[in-house]
Structure formats: C-alpha cells, structure tokens
Design a protein around this nucleic acid. Structure first.
Lengths: 254, 254
DNA sequence: AAGTGGTCTAGACCACCGA
DNA sequence: CGGTGGTCTAGACCACTTC
C-alpha cells in the first residue's frame, strides 16, 4: 500500500457538510420533520451561513430537503414518479385527470417553437396553458402551442380566454390522426410564470420536457412542460404494466 | 408598452443580471468566445462578485455558459441531443460505438439498486463502468449492475478487473432474451467518481437515467447513467427515423 | 508567476409566513 | 410581531491552468 494518495484534494467544507447532513437525514429525521434554522445549523457546524447554505442547496437539488421562505427547512418525501412515456400515443387532453386546463390565448410562439412548428415566427398560434397535478401537488406547468392550421375548424376567436377555450382547442386536436411523438428532456430553470404555478421561486431547477406531436406528415403541435426537478422523477415505462411505485428509498440503511 | 406594470415586485439583482447577460450572449457573443473574468464583470455591473456569480451559475445551469477553473468562462454551444429511447430494445453493449467499457469489478450494489434487482443487499454483483462519448465529448458515466444469477456462465473471476472483464460481462448479457425496459430520469448531482469521468466538479448537476432490464420474468440488470445536465438534452424519439439534429438554437433572432 | 474560477467569511438587509 | 429563508456585500484565500 502506501501508494494510494490519501486526500490529495482537500474536500471543500460544504461538500463534507452535505455528506454529514445527508447521513443525519437518513438516521435522525423523519419525512416532513423540520430542521433547525440556517443560523443555528451554521453555528453548530462552525461555518458561515453561506457555506451551510451551499450544502443545503445541494441537498435540495437532490430532492432530500425542501426549503420555504418564512417557514423553514423540512425533510422531503421521496420523489414522486411521474409517467411521461409515449407508448400510449395520445393527444394531450386525453387524460383529463392528470392535466388541468388553465387558460388559452393567441400569441406568438418563442422562436425555437416556431422553428419546430415550421410556422412564421411572427404568426400567432393557440397557446394553451395546463398544469399537471399528482398526489395533490402541482408537479408540472405546460405551454402547448397549436398552429391555427392544425385546428382549422376551431370556432375559436369568439370564445374568451380561459379554461373553456383551452378545452375547445384540445378537443379539436383530438380529431387529427396522430402519427407519432418526439420527446426530449433537459435541465432548465423555472421562468417567473412557471415558478408561480409550481409554487417555487423563479430560477428553481426544472426538467423541461419538449414534445413534438406529429400528424398529417408534419409537426401539428408542440408542448413545453416544466416539471419540478426537486420532487419529480420522470418515468418512461416500456413494459406495459410494470411500474415502480414511488422511489427506491433506501432510508435507514444502518 | 407603457401599460405594463413595471415591477411591482422588486426583481433580485442576480435575476436581472442573468437576463441582461443572456441577451448579451445572444447578440454580442459567438459560441466558444470567452467572457471577461468575474471580477471585471462584477465591477462593470456594479455588483459584488458573489451576485455576479449567482447569475453565471444560472446561465451555466441552462447550458448557455461553460466555466472552467483556471481558464475562464466561455459561451457554450447548443446542447447536444443524446438518444436514450427504448424503442430499440437491446442490451447494453449492443452499440459499442456509443459506450466505452472502462472497468468491471465485483462489489455490493447500493441498497436502492439491490432492491430493484431483488438481491440481498450484502451480495456482490458484477459492476460494470462505462462512459458514453458523443461528438468527442464524454457525456455520460454509467454503472451497470448485473447479478451473478443473470450471467451464470460467465467464466468470470479469473479475468482481472478492466475493460476486458467489462466486455465479457456485456457479452454474456446479450445471451439473455430481453423482455423489456423500464426507464426513469431525475436530477442529481455528480458523485466524485462520476464528476471525474465527466470532467466536471463534484456536485455538478446531472441527469440520472435509471434503467431496469427485464429478462426471464425478473430484473436481470440495472443501469444508473449520469449525463452532464449542462451539455445534454436527452431525446426519446418515438417516430422511427425523425430526429432533431442538434437543438433548436435561436441565436441572433434579431 | 499571473490570472482564472471555486470556496469561505462575517456581517447586513429584505421578503415572506405564521401567530 | 418575531422568525424563517433569500439576497447582497466586500473582502480573503485556495486550486487550477497557462505561460
């Protein structure tokens, strides 16, 4: 032995803190329990509050803690598995239990979306806002962009903005023959409006799921859904029925 | 114009900074270009360095910047789309171009993995380490856990740890009839070893893709792959051939 | 050695929540 | 109102890369 270099790299304090706190969470705390406040914790570990916060931030990012301004820091429950598989090829709106229509307006789509749709970036498209609720928690906020060409028969403009109009757009979409979907997942930070729906601060980490719906040989609609990264695990089941219920939690490994 | 309520809520400085910087990136910088250093930028905007850093962190999280210690901050290229679809049901190792076997050892799996495998948490399983390389960049580091029961004919123990042993485990896996896969994506932070493979600092944000491989009516293997969240977009194509080449970049929308 | 980003400190004030 | 987390400051030193 002797060859192995022991700790050539001094471990940053916040990293060590995170490890210690993580172990404490496993052994000494129950889900939902509130931790001491940041000033106390920092004093207890003999570090500045900023350093303590760096550790807490990481633990929150990993879905182990939940922090709320004015309230405190609590131990988060295991992440909830949210099914986003595409095996059941269906139009958005087919499962009304999961998604709640919030609003619908006509507006110009972001340049990136217009490009996917193949529409003029200056053209207005139907923009439907929905939220996804699971286990009583809003886990995702979505913007669905539907070019007028995809829903030619929409009576449309006379319906005022609101959930009713959102539903009518979704209803029209069902009439098209869906040919496929294309999905992508990436990390993002919550925009102000999404943050509000998700009960998070702006900039909170989110998983952005972008879906292209194909019909009639072209992109008939595009959905951009932002999921809370702290509380969600996106599942893509391929096996039909099998589904892991709710995380693999390994608490109290002892 | 004019009518919009200007800032009922005072916007945090770092948030405003992020917006300003983001727009500057779109208009005044090319991919790969290096930004002024943090001290200069902070002075230029009249804020403390910590505040400036908070803005940079967010932009890096969104994949717009890349920072490297001792070097500087550069404008990141658009995220690369990485296919992680499960439509082609194949065992890991079937596409040797994408994944590079690094090593294989026998070790006890994490409790969460053992639970998925249905093995005794104290039992050792074959643990294969691989990295995924795309466009000359290592985008993912994977640990593949294979219980001995899944590869009964593995000559095994006499092969020393290393790429050769990794390949032999993968080869044995191919012999099983695959019945399905189960996949999940969630946000995580890079462990020390993964960070090293990915050329990132420990704690860097990663997308963790957990895959269960089903064969013989049970979970025959479990893979935990961590993708660089800053540079990767995970794609789940469902349409056969259609694939978006490399991001929808909307630079210089002007 | 010089310059970069990464870590850390010890304060301060602000925004929000609940009693 | 008091207590919480969120923002911000003006420093300091460290680890790393490059020359």
């Amino acid at each position: 032995m002797g060859t192995t270099q022991l700790e050539t790299v001094p471990e940053p304090k916040y990293w060590h803190l995170k490890t210690v706190l993580g172990e404490a969470l496993d052994s000494d705390f129950a889900v939902g329990e509130v931790l001491p406040n940041e000033r106390d914790l920092a004093a207890r570990f003999g570090v500045a509050r900023a350093t303590l916060r760096q550790a807490l931030e990481q633990l929150e990012l990993e879905g182990r803690l939940q922090r709320r301004r004015g309230v405190g820091t609590t131990v988060a429950p295991p992440r909830v598995g949210v099914d986003v598989s595409t095996t059941q090829q269906e139009w958005p709106g087919a499962d009304p239990d999961a998604w709640q229509p919030v609003d619908a307006v006509s507006a110009v789509a972001p340049a990136a979306v217009a490009k996917m749709l193949g529409t003029d970036p200056a053209d207005e498209v139907h923009t439907v806002r929905r939220t996804r609720v699971t286990h009583g928690q809003t886990v995702a906020a979505e913007l669905l962009y539907v070019p007028s060409a995809s829903v030619p028969e929409l009576p449309a403009i006379d319906i005022p903005s609101g959930p009713a109009r959102a539903r009518s757009v979704l209803r029209e979409l069902q009439r098209l023959g869906m040919e496929g979907q294309d999905r992508a997942v990436e990390l993002g930070s919550a925009r102000v409006d999404d943050a509000k729906e998700l009960d998070r601060l702006p900039g909170a980490p989110v998983l952005v799921v972008t879906t292209r719906y194909l019909a009639g040989g072209r992109t008939a609609a595009v959905s951009v859904a932002t999921y809370r990264a702290d509380t969600c695990r996106l599942t893509f089941g391929d096996t039909g029925d099998v589904r892991i219920s709710h995380h693999t939690d390994e608490r109290r490994a002892s």
